[in-house]
């Protein structure tokens, strides 16, 4: 089962866990991205996430489908939030269930690493004295 979502509302860890829970799974691996309070020593006031939603959903689904092809996993959830997020809030949750932990860990790591490379979602860091689109400039 693949479950993909982009939402303006806070993400639910419980929902993600419930969706991947399975009697045939021996383990669940969960990655939770959280908003850090500083970047290179500068205090972050908040982050703003923006998505090209139709394409982002499609790219997230491709990641999940690749995982199902590559590793013996049962269920994958990839939920991403957009909008304004404050320190400690959760922009992304990835949950993977598998019969054995190796596949779950590997798939979960692949999912977040690939999401950061290919899914059209952007993050702007807002500081007290300015703002910057992350990774935009060299």
């Amino acid at each position: 089962m693949i479950d993909i979502k982009i939402d303006t509302e806070p993400l639910s860890l419980q929902t993600c866990f419930d969706k991947v829970m399975s009697p045939v799974a021996g383990g669940i691996d969960v990655f939770i991205g959280t908003v850090r309070n500083s970047t290179k020593g500068k205090k972050v006031v908040h982050l703003e996430f923006e998505a090209y939603e139709t394409m982002a959903l499609q790219e997230m689904r491709k990641i999940a489908e690749n995982i199902i092809e590559k590793w013996p996993v049962h269920h994958i959830v990839i939920h991403h939030r957009v909008g304004v997020l404050k320190t400690g809030e959760i922009p992304v949750i990835i949950a993977v269930s598998a019969a054995h932990r190796d596949a779950a860990f590997t798939a979960c790591r692949y999912a977040i690493d690939t999401l950061k490379q290919s899914v059209p979602i952007w993050k702007k860091e807002v500081f007290e004295d300015g703002e910057v689109w992350v990774a935009a400039h060299p």
Binding site: G33, Y52, H80, P91, K116, P120, W122, K123
Partner: peptide, 10 residues
């Protein structure tokens, strides 16, 4: 058509 600058989700 869309311009996709460097992505930074997650």
């Amino acid at each position: 058509i869309a311009i996709i600058p460097p992505v930074s989700g997650g």
